[in-house]
């Protein structure tokens, strides 16, 4: 029913589209679009006080920290070390690409060492 689990990418099945699978994907798309536009739609239709806008203003950094903190907390010394490498490289070079490469190389290296 869901393709050939044992031969992924086998040419015969590569382009197959199971109707049920497509339906599930479209349902995932609908709820994701609702999630993506829902917040700003709400805010555009509600009058905001300056006080609330101050709260909105800290959201970006706070969300980044909220994504990161549990992920790093559930990691180990290798992930922590690699995160420190990213901070250091970003601080010095201000290049996201360099920081990204250093972080990924770092995590692979630390995982091998630790």
């Amino acid at each position: 029913m869901i393709g050939e689990p044992t031969v992924p990418g086998f040419l015969g099945g590569a382009l197959s589209l199971d109707p049920v699978v497509v339906g599930v994907i479209l349902a995932m798309t609908v709820v994701t679009v609702i999630a993506k536009v829902g917040g700003i739609w709400l805010i555009r239709h509600v009058e905001l006080s300056e006080r609330l806008e101050a709260g909105l203003d800290v959201l970006p950094g706070a969300i980044m920290i909220a994504v990161l903190a549990p992920e790093l907390a559930s990691g180990g010394p290798a992930e922590w070390g690699a995160a420190a490498v990213v901070v250091a490289v970003m601080w010095r070079t201000e290049s996201i690409l360099l920081a990204l490469i250093a972080g990924v190389v770092g995590v692979v290296g630390f995982r091998a060492l630790l």
């Binding site: 800290v58 950094g61 992920e71 690699a82 901070v87 970003m90 990204l100 990924v104 995590v107 995982r111």
Partner: peptide, 29 residues
């Protein structure tokens, strides 16, 4: 094994460094 699972975290760490704004970000963060 290629560290791909760390990419999202690395991007966010890098951008958090950039968004860091000293004392005003400390409490909310």
């Amino acid at each position: 094994q290629y560290g791909f699972d760390f990419i999202l975290a690395a991007v966010f760490v890098a951008l958090a460094v950039e968004l860091w704004d000293g004392a005003s970000t400390l409490v909310p963060w």
